[in-house]
Design a protein around this nucleic acid. Structure first.
Lengths: 121, 121
DNA sequence: TTCTGATTCAACCATGTAGTTGAATATCGG
DNA sequence: CCGATATTCAACTACATGGTTGAATCAGAA
């Protein structure tokens, strides 16, 4: 599991760490939305919502296009896919499919030449 | 896409939004580790690393067990799986498999009775 | 008990984040 | 031009986060 651009993952996961922004992404999954559309359900000022949208943009999670006086946003799924891939690394843990992972990990265990559990006394 | 416990997802994604903590999770994927083990490669004081580990614990991403004077940590993959599932909702976007998603979204579109793109000109 | 090791806690500082309000910018339409 | 609409910017406040250092806690060993 090599992280190609940790800073990028930082901003993606951090952007996802807020329910308002996740809700906006879900709205965007249904199609293009304007800033006003995204802000409307968000129990906060337009300016605050605008900054959430900017955070999504900085993380690369959305693209914007200005048409006239309205800014249209749409989902840019690439970074979401990166986050998904990062998490997929752990899939073996929660699905019980540990076989592949185990081989991988035993190698690293051997390299470290350490017994994390077997010999504690 | 219903969020059962938004606050839980908040803490999970936020915990993942830091390269140090992600590295710790990767270490833990290789087996149990002590606080000291996890802190060692982390170019920061032990106290700071300890707080990162506490953040992982608060997010439910790791479990700890005190054996003697050392605290052993292991991966608790459940919340990672939740995050993964949340992201999986968007899989259609980055794999191009939009058929399933589209049906789903059209329904929501209809409910909102709005034309986000089809009638802009 | 005393020394050492593993980990946390407390106090502190700097920075980031999330919200507010009010002004600024830019576009559409009369 | 003028007024309304869409969005952002700036200044401010409050709180969270991430790091530091030094003291505290608690277990093991001499």
């Amino acid at each position: 599991m090599v992280e190609s651009e940790p800073a990028a993952l930082d901003s993606v996961f951090r952007a996802l760490g807020d329910a308002t922004r996740r809700r906006m992404l879900q709205d965007l999954a249904a199609g293009e939305r304007t800033v006003g559309d995204l802000a409307a359900p968000a129990a906060m000022s337009l300016a605050a919502a605008s900054r959430h949208i900017q955070a999504l943009g900085r993380a690369g999670l959305i693209h914007r296009e200005v048409r006239g006086r309205t800014h249209w946003c749409r989902l840019a799924p690439g970074p979401l896919a990166s986050a998904h891939r990062w998490l997929a690394f752990y899939e073996g843990f929660w699905t019980g499919r540990l076989d592949v992972l185990e081989r991988l990990l035993r190698e690293e265990e051997a390299m470290r030449n350490r017994t994390p559990k077997g010999d504690e006394g």
